[in-house]
């Protein structure tokens, strides 16, 4: 009876090794976002990310200054040291002015909008190529919660999905798990934007009869209760009309390149902000009236 002579201890260990991934698969069925043991690890992760973010800012500043100095030296070898210093200062001044202008635009946007916005800095990107997320330096301590919209002045970026005390993970609209209600600005056709790759998304469920062209702007639809209605989302890059499909195959490119974003706004409350404006809404009403008249 050789087959019964197995090492029970080894068999047990092997069983534990195999069963752990299976348990983890089962765990995914339940919501386990706020378990107590996650907190210290999240805290450690966000601390490490904050340190590295600070370090990278320092390195960037030093490198930029160093590159500037080298450029000035090669161009103006005959100029004196004082002149070099002045030019470098001038460059730094220009850099500061650029930053000032950027921050002023952000401030203007924050002042002029009805929305309650929280400014945040991007401190990290996702660890694996399969997911498109960013980490921001604001968390539940600053009033952030899951499902809040994240945007920049130029367009929507994504939404909060894993907030911890002092930082939050933002799911970008390019992530394959992300789904955002969208509207083609010109035709008012509704659809859903789903993430595809790092730089592109697909617009689903738009009827084949719709007049959609490359370059058309897609704005947020507002039905998902995340984004305010009418905020720029993406631009159409490719439209395929397959005869078998009831809907169009539309490839889109987000208006905001999330890989280059440094500052974002989290929408705490939209306060019924509608970026479509009254004129656009009147046009929509007119279109609707025309359609009903035709049907009648």
């Amino acid at each position: 009876m050789n087959f019964l002579n197995f090492n029970l201890k080894k068999a047990f260990i092997l069983l534990v090794i195999i069963s752990l991934p299976l348990i983890s698969i089962n765990m995914e069925q339940k919501t386990v976002s706020n378990l107590w043991f996650n907190k210290p690890f999240s805290f450690l992760a966000q601390s490490v990310q904050n340190i590295f973010h600070g370090l990278s800012q320092g390195v960037r500043a030093t490198t930029a200054e160093y590159i500037n100095i080298i450029n000035v030296k090669t161009k103006n070898r005959d100029l004196q040291k004082e002149n070099d210093e002045l030019k470098t200062r001038l460059n730094l001044f220009a850099e500061s002015q650029n930053e000032l202008e950027r921050l002023r635009t952000l401030l203007d946007f924050q002042k002029n909008t009805k929305m309650d916005l929280i400014p945040a800095q991007v401190i990290g990107r996702d660890l694996v190529t399969d997911h498109n997320t960013i980490t921001i330096n604001k968390g539940t301590d600053h009033g952030l919660k899951s499902g809040q919209a994240v945007l920049t002045v130029s367009g929507a970026v994504g939404y909060i999905f894993k907030p911890s005390a002092k930082s939050s993970h933002v799911m970008l609209i390019t992530d394959r798990y992300s789904v955002v209600d969208a509207l083609i600005q010109k035709t008012r056709a509704h659809g859903l934007i789903e993430g595809k790759t790092k730089e592109s998304c697909v617009l689903q469920y738009v009827e084949r009869t719709e007049d959609v062209k490359d370059g058309d702007l897609i704005v947020t639809g507002g039905l998902d209760n995340i984004f305010p209605k009418g905020f720029p989302l993406a631009v159409i890059t490719n439209v395929e009309r397959k005869t078998k499909n009831a809907s169009l195959q539309i490839e889109v490119k987000p208006v905001v390149d999330a890989n280059k974003v440094e500052e974002v706004f989290v929408v705490k409350s939209t306060a019924s902000e509608d970026f479509l404006g009254e004129s656009a809404q009147t046009e929509v009403k007119k279109e609707d009236e025309k359609k009903t008249a035709k049907n009648e």
Partner: peptide, 8 residues
């Protein structure tokens, strides 16, 4: 803790 990657 650093990614959206699921535990499974």
């Amino acid at each position: 803790r650093f990614s959206e990657i699921p535990l499974k």
